[in-house]
Deep mutational scan, measured.
Amino acid sequence: MGFKLLSKLLVYLTASIMAIASPLAFSVDSSGEYPTVSEIPVGEVRLYQIADGVWSHIATQSFDGAVYPSNGLIVRDGDELLLIDTAWGAKNTAALLAEIEKQIGLPVTRAVSTHFHDDRVGGVDVLRAAGVATYASPSTRRLAEVEGNEIPTHSLEGLSSSGDAVRFGPVELFYPGAAHSTDNLIVYVPSASVLYGGCAIYELSRTSAGNVADADLAEWPTSIERIQQHYPEAQFVIPGHGLPGGLDLLKHTTNVVKAHTNRSVVE
């Protein structure tokens, strides 16, 4: 069995187990497998329904001669939608809004960016022009300005110390501490036991640490421990890039980060 097929099978099995364990909360999309990078042309966006009122959005972007996937989250909030992270750029984010209108038909009224990198804030200006209120932590807003990236308009308070959590509509926002970046936030959907790890969490097929220019490698494993301790009931975990899975993604990420750190020390 090929690795790609095995990865998709694991996603399907995880979703099936969740649907059985929580039949009222989960209505997993039966329309197909989780979209992969090879299936999404740059400039297009796919939506994948995880649970009743919960979707991931998947886009792709060219970077350094390669094409990478990027995940975000959409959560229903009454007759409105909360968006977590842009679709990595203005063109993708405009396509995301169009796809949401086509498939869901509810307005996106608020959006949260989970850290300051372009795959999370690139497209904020498109959201703002569409009347979406954009939010991020003060740290993310400051770092985005320093980096020359787009800056969300509103500040999220109460997320300055490791372990801080605040309720934001249908989700809980959690600051686990520094990891992929010093400002990275985690998003949890309690009604569906869905954990969105953003770039602080890796997919299972990833074996290298990737972009760690703004990471705190020493603190990252401790931050992941905080996530595990705060959300032990999480059933569906979405990484910032690639295929979702279960809580095993947290341990896998820790292993990859520690291996990278150990290699760096040896070198």
Rank of each mutant, 00 (worst) to 15 (best):
P170K: 06
G158D: 08
E233A: 12
H230T: 13
F3M: 14
P176A: 06
G242I: 06
T60A: 12
S208I: 10
D164P: 06
E101F: 08
S7D: 07
H230V: 11
N262Q: 10
I58L: 11
L97V: 00
M18S: 15
S139M: 13
I201D: 05
L73P: 06
K91H: 10
S22G: 12
P107H: 11
N255F: 09
L13G: 07
V237W: 02
Y12G: 09
Q103W: 11
V189K: 00
T114G: 01
L247E: 09
S160Y: 10
Y231E: 00
S38D: 11
I224D: 02
C199W: 03
T109V: 13
W88G: 00
L143E: 06
A25K: 15
F116R: 04
E150P: 04
L73R: 02
V121R: 03
V75L: 05
F63I: 07
R263P: 13
A25N: 13
L156S: 03
A133M: 14
S208P: 07
N262K: 11
S30V: 12
A25S: 13
L13Q: 10
A218H: 13
E44C: 06
R76L: 12
T140K: 06
N262W: 09
G198W: 04
V237H: 02
Q235W: 08
V124Q: 03
T134G: 02
G2N: 15
H241S: 03
V265A: 12
G89L: 04
P41T: 12
P41D: 13
L83R: 00
A144V: 09
T114M: 06
V194A: 05
E80P: 02
G198K: 00
S56T: 15
G148M: 08
A218K: 14
G122T: 06
S38H: 10
L106G: 05
K251H: 11
G2L: 13
D164M: 11
K102V: 13
E44N: 13
P176T: 01
Q228C: 07
L81S: 02
A111L: 08
D29P: 09
V171W: 03
V121L: 06
S7Q: 10
P138S: 08
L73C: 03
R142G: 12
H180K: 00
L9N: 15
I50C: 03
T153V: 13
E99H: 15
L10A: 12
P152T: 03
S193F: 13
F63C: 04
A90V: 09
T60D: 05
P107L: 08
S139Y: 10
I227V: 12
P170W: 02
S113A: 10
S70Q: 03
V265Y: 12
F174L: 10
T253M: 04
G32Q: 09
W220A: 01
V257T: 04
S7Y: 14
A209E: 06
E44Q: 12
D125T: 09
L247H: 13
A21F: 14
G53R: 10
T254E: 12
V212M: 08
K4H: 06
Y68M: 04
R142E: 14
G169T: 04
V28G: 10
E99P: 05
Q228E: 13
T153P: 05
V266S: 15
A192N: 07
L83H: 00
A25H: 15
D248A: 12
Y135W: 10
P232H: 08
V257Q: 02
S137C: 03
H180I: 00
R206W: 14
P69R: 09
A215V: 05
H260S: 13
D52Y: 09
L127E: 01
L127P: 04
H230S: 13
V257H: 06
L195C: 01
G163L: 05
P107A: 11
V121F: 03
G242Y: 03
G53W: 06
A21P: 08
S62H: 06
L96D: 00
P170M: 06
R167D: 14
Q235N: 09
T14P: 14
E219K: 08
G131P: 05
S62T: 07
E225N: 09
K91P: 13
Y231S: 02
D216H: 07
L9I: 15
T222G: 13
H230E: 11
S208R: 09
F168K: 02
R76A: 10
I100V: 11
S16P: 12
A178T: 07
G105L: 07
L247R: 15
S162L: 10
T254W: 14
A98W: 12
D164L: 08
T222S: 13
Y12I: 11
V132G: 02
A15L: 12
T86Y: 04
E225S: 11
D119F: 00
M1K: 06
G89S: 05
T182I: 11
L13I: 15
V37T: 13
V265T: 13
F63T: 05
S62E: 08
I40F: 14
N262F: 10
V187P: 04
Y231P: 01
Y135P: 00
A15N: 13
S208F: 10
A133H: 12
L250T: 04
A200R: 01
R141C: 06
S162Y: 11
F116V: 05
P176H: 03
Y202E: 05
P23C: 13
L24N: 15
E44A: 12
E145T: 11
V189M: 02
S264Y: 09
R128G: 11
I50Q: 05
L83W: 02
A15S: 14
E225V: 12
G163W: 04
E157I: 10
V189N: 03
P152D: 01
P35R: 08
L24Q: 11
D125P: 04
A87S: 05
S223Q: 01
G89I: 00
N184H: 03
V189Y: 02
S208M: 11
H252I: 04
I201C: 00
A178M: 08
S7F: 09
S27E: 09
A165E: 13
H260R: 11
P239S: 03
Q61F: 07
R76W: 06
G122I: 04
D118M: 09
W220D: 00
Q229W: 11
I104W: 00
R263K: 15
D79V: 09
W55N: 04
W88R: 00
P41H: 12
N184L: 01
E145Q: 13
E203D: 07
T86D: 00
S137N: 08
A200K: 01
L82D: 00
F174K: 01
H252N: 08
A259H: 10
E80K: 08
G78Y: 08
Q229I: 10
G43N: 11
A90N: 08
G163T: 07
N262S: 13
V189R: 01
G2A: 08
I74L: 08
N184G: 02
G240Q: 02
S205T: 10
A66K: 12
I50G: 03
H117Y: 02
I224N: 05
A111C: 08
S162C: 07
D64I: 10
I74M: 05
A215I: 02
V67Y: 15
V266E: 15
S155R: 12
V265P: 13
N71I: 04
L96W: 00
G158C: 05
I224S: 02
W88A: 00
N211H: 03
A179S: 06
Y12S: 10
L195N: 00
D85R: 00
Y188D: 02
